[in-house]
């Protein structure tokens, strides 16, 4: 096996999933932290400043490019694996064990990932497109607003109020966070196993952390559209 074959071997493909998966998890932490500024109840001032920092800091903008590359690698490898997995058992069993030998969400990573992908497209269209491409390619630019730091910044908070005043959007976001929760409930601990990190000393801790992360982070995200819809919609 030569060096490039390492990455195309069955284990190598999973290493790509594990590395990009952990990277996406670290992104979620930052994303959740920044977005939680919206709960400050200050008309979006703190949130708009945080979003402005994320959009103007060169280090963050570089990470954004790496994030897109990692996300694309995760999506393509994930879909390729999901399709490949279906080819190794051409004749199916008449009777299947169901949930007796494994968890349904562990067996449904491809489906949960596809739901996440559909959500991501909607989500990027709602916020990333107007904030990064607004003003060019015929995309409506975001409104601007003075914030307490004395700068004129994009009013992403108002954009959020606009999107989350529609009930169906709120429902789609909440359901998508359900998919994320289950994707992570399997994915968080699986990524460590894939990368060879499994030991009786720390695996129980990773598993507990994984469960906590998979519940708390998607719940925090889901609370955002609900909060706007209930208390601050247009």
């Amino acid at each position: 096996m030569n060096f490039s074959q390492i990455f195309t071997s069955s284990i190598g493909k999973k290493i790509v999933m594990g590395v990009t998966g952990i990277f996406l998890v670290s992104f979620l932490m930052v994303h959740a932290g920044i977005n939680a500024c919206m709960f400050a109840n200050d008309g979006g001032d703190l949130f708009n400043r945080a979003a402005h920092f994320m959009g103007s800091n060169w280090l963050i903008r570089t990470m954004e490019i790496i994030l897109f590359a990692g996300l694309l690698a995760h999506i393509f490898q994930g879909l390729a694996l999901t399709l490949d997995h279906k080819t190794h058992r051409p004749v199916k069993y008449a009777v299947n064990p169901g949930n007796e030998t494994s968890k349904w969400y562990s067996r449904s990573m491809g489906l949960l990932g596809t739901l996440l992908l559909m959500f991501l497209i909607i989500h990027l269209y709602h916020f990333w497109t107007p904030s990064r491409l607004g003003g060019s390619f015929g995309v409506q630019p975001l409104a601007e607003k003075w914030v307490s730091s004395g700068e004129m910044v994009h009013d992403l908070y108002a954009e959020m109020q606009e999107e989350f005043s529609e009930l169906w959007v709120v429902i789609v976001y909440v359901l998508a966070m359900g998919s994320l929760a289950y994707h992570l409930l399997h994915g968080f601990q699986s990524a460590f196993r894939t990368l060879g990190l499994s030991h009786k000393k720390y695996t129980p801790t990773i598993e507990k952390l994984g469960v906590a992360f998979s519940i708390l982070v998607p719940a925090l995200f889901a609370a955002m559209p609900v909060y706007i819809y209930l208390f601050h919609k247009n």
Binding site: I11, K14, I15, L81, H88, K103, R107, H199
Partner: peptide, 27 residues
């Protein structure tokens, strides 16, 4: 053979109860 998704069905069905810890070691 396919690649591993870490569902754990193998360990659940193995008559010799081989642990999936071995899969992490193989990785």
């Amino acid at each position: 053979f396919g690649s591993c998704t870490n569902t754990g069905a193998c360990e659940a069905e193995c008559p010799k109860e081989i642990s999936v810890m071995n899969i992490a070691r193989l990785n």
